[in-house]
Amino acid sequence: MMATDEDSQRRILTQIAAVAWEHPADRAALNALRRIPGFDLVLRKIFALFGERALRLAFKANAVRTSENQYARVHARLARVCEVLDVEKPPECYISQTPIVNAGAVGFGEPFIVLNSSMLEILSEDEVEAVLGHEVGHILSGHVLYRTLLILVLNLVILRYTLAGLALRPILMALMEWYRKSELSSDRAGLLAVQNPRIAMSALMQLAGGTRGISLDLDEFIAQSDEYRAGGDLLDAVYKVLNVLGQTHPFAVIRVAELRDWIESGEYDRVLSGEYQRRGEKDDRPYHEDLRAAMKGYQEGAREIFDEVDAAVDRLRGRLTDAFKGRKEG
């Protein structure tokens, strides 16, 4: 692939450590996950039953591996992502014939990336590159081990063995809660890979509701994201919590808002300027600091709900008072 002006302007993030883009809620949730009684035992038993070899063979049998000859453009984009994030050996990438627009990274010792074929039909090449950066971010953050566990628990335990599924329900819910947070981290990795906020956010918009041949307006989607976060009453706030309980991914509008928050905080520019932790350097942020940062976010969200409760109570009180006055006057 020939170099372009955009390539020359893109900064190579030499020896960047995953902690540079990891969301504190992701790190705190993962630490909490590891503290669940019996979690390590379940992990060992499931990995004893299934190996990476079986997963890789499944995709070799029923998907197309990218190369210089197969999906060459995707292969080249993945190589560029790995160059920017300073990954010496790019992971294998497979294209699977699937109508759902999605992607994932799976595996144990040598993780690999899977892109659903419909993604290549709906997203632009630049947006696909942001998705590849997102998946490489999962691999570098060590998310893939637990994501693979989640897939195995969902597909091989919950769906086939009901009693075992009930026993593993707490672990499943904890895995899903963590994985929603891990998506916020990898969205940042995707942004760092393409180094263009509009491309990174546009990819999320396409994943939310892109359709072949339809042009979407990113600014309007950003406005929709602001509306979702700010609007609604108490009932809406409750629904927002309930709606994500069964999801592995946060809603796209939330992911766009979180990405904008990270950019506006100045962290994104600091990373691009070279102010980031390198691999091998001691992590100066212990678990309790991640937990405190995560809790701050949760507290702010809870405070918003409490404010909505107060407003809802005031409105209810006003309606009851008006109704009582009306009956009294009548």
Rank of each mutant, 00 (worst) to 15 (best):
W21H: 07
Q9P: 00
S8P: 02
R11Y: 01
L41Y: 07
R34N: 08
A48L: 12
F47E: 15
F47N: 09
L13G: 07
Q9M: 05
F50S: 06
R27E: 10
E52N: 11
A25Y: 01
L13W: 05
D40V: 11
L41C: 04
A18S: 14
R34M: 10
A54G: 09
G51V: 05
W21I: 02
V42H: 00
A58G: 11
A32E: 13
G38R: 00
V42M: 07
R10H: 00
I16Y: 06
A25W: 01
G51N: 12
A48R: 12
H23P: 05
A28F: 04
R34G: 03
A25T: 05
L33T: 03
A25S: 15
T14R: 14
L55V: 06
V19N: 11
E22Q: 15
K45M: 12
R27M: 07
F39H: 04
R44Q: 12
R44V: 05
R56M: 03
V19A: 13
R34Q: 11
A25D: 13
E22N: 09
R27C: 04
R44A: 15
A20R: 04
W21Q: 06
A17P: 13
E22W: 00
R35V: 05
L43V: 10
R56N: 09
R10F: 00
I46V: 15
R44M: 10
